[in-house]
Design a protein around this nucleic acid. Structure first.
Lengths: 241, 241
DNA sequence: TTAGCGAATTCTGGATCCAATAGACGGAGA
DNA sequence: TCTCCGTCTATTGGATCCAGAATTCGCTAA
């Protein structure tokens, strides 16, 4: 079954990844003509893709002006973490009684890898080694993989969709600038994962829920640190062409 | 300030209302040509509007086939209520310490009106009077208005957007078919509103949170009843033209 | 020198046109 | 009669074309 797709969908997917990945920075203006040249299509599918991005809230749409990548404010970021905290708590609670031994084993495997990566990250942060973007990305992915097991077991597609949408407001790469301050927070993250896993293993849905909620909320603290060290970097380049 | 808007946005807005309001039933196929004739525009803005609806999850998009209004399954409906329960709980908790006397007064006003409407509805349900759609709509709106005060005070736009998105999966009119069974649930709804209001008034954010969560979850029970009485009405008309 | 005004340019929004796909219809053969 | 296959039509996806809005730029005048 060759899953058919339209060019508009392909383009939207690519742009989506680039925006959430930070390749296209917040505040950037997306020109239809430029995009149509880049993807070697006409402006029609490009515009449909942009409509989708706008509906997803990734870009803001100003009639007769153009679209620009939305830069999230500190408030929005905080709120996104609140939402994630509630929904991850819910997913964890629901997933706990549904966990099979296989699922738990998978969580263990991911958690071990996550622990290793965390150690490496902390080492780098301590020794002041040059930043290793690939390592950070891998750490992030392992982090997400841990939570993804929970989502998969919970079988709550709507919750998963919303939570992952809120997840993307964390523009990964930026955290690096503040990595020196993040040492203990890295460690805390790892410990929390273990606590969640143990609560699930013990079959305590309520404890797992509470731990998951606190886990996300303390990630929020991590973000606060990042925002502080970043300072007021929020410049809005204007519509200039 | 004459808020400019594109035709695509206008069309999307209208279709959105019609879909969530039930004027366009789930399973209906939306033909581009038909819509373009109806709105007296070309197919271009229609397609952009449909893209937006697809991104919002209101319709499903099948390449080279068309779009159809998504019919929510019982599982999806249940999940939407879980999400709403968590987010309303969050919003209520956040809103509680921010409530001003004016806000509380407004809640009182709405609650009184809601109580009256609830009584009328219960009377109708008991006496088996002919269904009064306008009354039900008004009841629903008063219900939403109550919660909207909380959202406004909480100042969490993202939470509000998501929760209201989940809210719309409740296709209002259908509930009527089961109204006889809903008598006590109506009453419960009213009592819960009062309890939430009192907890907020007392400044107990945690109690308000718990009450709000239970309130939405018991609405879920209401929906279960509706679904049961509705039976398996889920027909998928196929793509036939 | 600078403020204001108007033309020119650039870009978006929408309409129209063409290509490609999917389902419907109908005929031929087993 | 039923199945298979080719054709035909309805409908979507994408390209191109045109109109209108917004910004830029340059000219004029105070």
């Amino acid at each position: 079954m060759s899953t058919v797709s339209t060019k508009a969908d392909d383009i939207a997917g690519i742009l989506e990844d680039e925006i959430v990945g930070g390749a296209i920075p917040p505040g950037a203006v997306l020109r239809q003509e430029t995009l149509s040249e880049r993807f070697e299509v006409s402006r029609t599918p490009v515009r449909e893709a942009l409509r989708r991005l706008a509906a997803l809230g990734l870009v803001s749409f100003e009639p007769n002006r153009g679209v620009r990548v939305r830069s999230i404010s500190a408030d929005e970021l905080r709120e996104a973490f609140l939402v994630r905290a509630e929904l991850e708590a819910l997913a964890t609670e629901v997933a706990t009684p549904k966990m099979t031994p296989d699922d738990l084993a998978e969580m263990d495997r991911i958690e071990r890898r996550f622990g290793e990566l965390t150690l490496e990250l902390r080492d780098q942060a301590r020794t002041g080694a040059p930043r290793d973007a690939a390592l950070f990305v891998e750490w992030m992915q392992a982090n997400y993989a841990f939570h993804d097991v929970i989502y998969r077991v919970a079988e709550l597609p709507l919750v998963e969709r919303i939570a992952k949408g809120a997840r993307r407001t964390f523009i990964g790469d930026r955290a690096w600038r503040a990595r020196a301050e993040l040492d203990q927070l890295y460690a805390k993250n790892d410990l929390q994962h273990r606590a969640i896993r143990e609560a699930i293993s013990a079959g305590s849905a309520q404890a797992a829920r509470t731990l998951a909620r606190e886990h996300v909320l303390s990630s929020n603290r991590l973000i606060e640190v990042v925002l502080e060290t970043l300072g007021a970097a929020g410049r809005e380049p204007g519509w200039g062409r």
